[in-house]
Amino acid sequence: MAQEAAYSAPPAKSRKRSNRQPLWLIYLFIFPAIALALVFDYYPAISGLYLSTTNTMEVGIPAHWIGLANYVSLFTNPIFLASLWHMAVLAAIGIAIGTVVPFLVAEMIFNLGSARWRYAYRVIFLLKMLIPGMVVVEVWGIILATNGVLDHLFKWVGLPWSHIGWLVDPHTALAAVAFIGFPWVAGIGILIYYAGLVGVNPEIWDAASVDGSRGFHRMRTIDLPLVMGQVKLTIILSAIGSFQGYFAQFLLTQGGPGFATMVPGYYMYLNAFQYGQMGMASAIGVFLFLVILALTIVNMKFVRSSQDYAVE
């Protein structure tokens, strides 16, 4: 890739690179970026680690160090443990959806003969990513509500599933949260897979065609192994996304009914800004950070750099 080349090429030329400028001037150029990163990124990250070991309640209230007590009480807290389970369920669904759907749709788009249509479909699904997530989730709240669109649809096809509201019934609430966004096509995944398919040598498909391999058979036996790097990347991205997200909880369920849709991210939000338990909230933040960090490291070690799926 051109970028990779740019990245690895410099040593040959760098001797020529000017140092005629005074050093202080060069440092002055990067100073704003470094200063902002130290104050607004590094300081919060590190103070978050510290906060998680204090009994801080709210800003301005004196607190003291309590060691790992927050972590201990988290992992004995049935609400938090339930939220971990919900997170795992939502992540499993999110990963399955986030990997399979974009692959299938990218294949559908890629296999269209017309370049114009291919571009048009990609633009259409991209357009969806501009719509504020808040608006989309709020309207989904109406779709899933008592006597909402889904209930009307079931009544119309004659299914006896009339319901007290999919997000209100504790048995269906978590599934309903997972269902928000159906059919989950729009997103970065479709671009990742599409770029992956563009990068495949077309001769492979010519050969497959000669061998009579078409459609789903070709997708499964030939295309899928070729985009395995993209599969891994979308797995990691979907996992990280679903570990952090709590839009539906924030806007629609507030973690309920009861705690049926509680997830750690939202529990952190509640602890920090509703319950006045900032120390506890920071402990949840640190825990999620460690989980995500582990995934990121797995990603860097075993998944090809995401730069490999660069721009089209």
Binding site: V39, F40, D41, Y43, P44, A45, S47, G48, L51, T56, V59, Q244, G265, M268, Y269, A272, F273, M278, A281, S282, I284, G285, V286, L288, F289, I292
Partner: peptide
């Protein structure tokens, strides 16, 4: 998620 709460404190 790590920085949200401490950033608010800051």
């Amino acid at each position: 998620v790590l920085t949200m709460v401490p950033q608010f404190v800051l």
